[in-house]
């Protein structure tokens, strides 16, 4: 292409060249295309996350089938009340995150900061309740590898008096249940900790006026991440807490 053509091309005259928002990168034609590309990239990342958690879900399904009585006895040590409260807290945080995206889209800086802070608070409440559950596991010697005793499983569980005590070899296998419990909820909690860390940065930048200037991709994509973490918990809750209640 000869340089004169570039110089005379109407789309390269300075006035037109800068007739786009400052956040539109030059390799995109339109803001909408840029937005589509970034959402697409975020979703591809989330698909890798589905596969990552999916491996643990597959392990859980197979080992539950394999050591069924141990998984039932392990599950009966969890608090359904705390699990339900935590599910509600996380759904609440997804709602506030969705409202944060809405606030960014409607360019409402105050509301954006408020909803981001609410999301952080609800995330911390979730982690607080989770750590209380972990602490209880430690006190009851239900942490495989570090602090484990079969005592609760070779004796009758007072919360489930109809349960028969497990034979010693099956009682040992409750460690498989608790290993998967800690791996899955621990990885989920790690995602929440990473999410809260990013949220703190987002709040600081939102104070400076970011995300309410029409460029909402960052908030939107973080919202996708936060909702994904919520979805992982939506499946962890029934699998770990609920489905073994009557078995």
């Amino acid at each position: 292409m000869d340089s004169q053509a570039i110089a005379t091309s109407p789309e390269h005259t300075p006035s037109v060249e800068h007739a786009h928002p400052p956040y539109l990168r030059h390799h995109f034609e339109t803001v909408e295309q840029q937005r589509e590309a970034s959402s697409f990239g975020m979703w591809l990342f989330l698909l890798t996350e589905i596969m990552f958690f999916g491996g643990m879900f597959a392990a859980y399904l197979i080992y539950r089938n394999w050591y069924y009585p141990a998984f039932v006895a392990g599950s009966h040590q969890l608090s359904i009340v705390l699990g339900t409260i935590n599910t509600a807290v996380l759904i609440g945080s997804s709602f506030t995150m969705a409202m944060a995206v809405y606030s960014a889209e409607t360019r409402n800086r105050k509301a954006l900061i408020t909803y981001l802070l609410l999301t952080i608070t609800l995330g911390l409440v979730f982690l607080g309740i989770k750590s209380d559950e972990y602490h209880e596991k430690w006190e009851k010697h239900h942490v495989p590898g570090l602090n484990f005793s079969v005592h609760d499983f070779v004796n009758v569980n007072p919360a489930y008096p109809d349960d028969k005590p497990l034979p010693l070899d099956m009682a040992e296998k409750t460690q498989v249940y608790f290993s998967l419990y800690f791996a899955m909820t621990g990885m989920h909690a790690l995602h929440m900790i990473i999410g809260i860390s990013i949220l703190i940065i987002l709040v600081i930048k939102a104070y400076g006026g970011s995300y309410t200037d029409g460029h909402v991709s960052t908030i939107e994509n973080f919202g996708l991440y936060w909702h994904f973490v919520d979805i992982v918990w939506i499946f962890l809750f029934p699998l770990l807490y609920l489905i073994s209640r009557h078995q």
């Binding site: 995150m97 996708l224 609920l242 489905i243």
Partner: peptide, 25 residues
């Protein structure tokens, strides 16, 4: 509900996940 405890719990989880994906996301 016997075996259906797991079926119902997972069905509700799938519905919840779909709502999150379709609307929140």
């Amino acid at each position: 509900l016997g075996v259906f405890n797991a079926v119902v719990a997972l069905a509700i989880a799938v519905i919840k996940a779909m709502l999150v994906v379709l609307f929140f996301m």
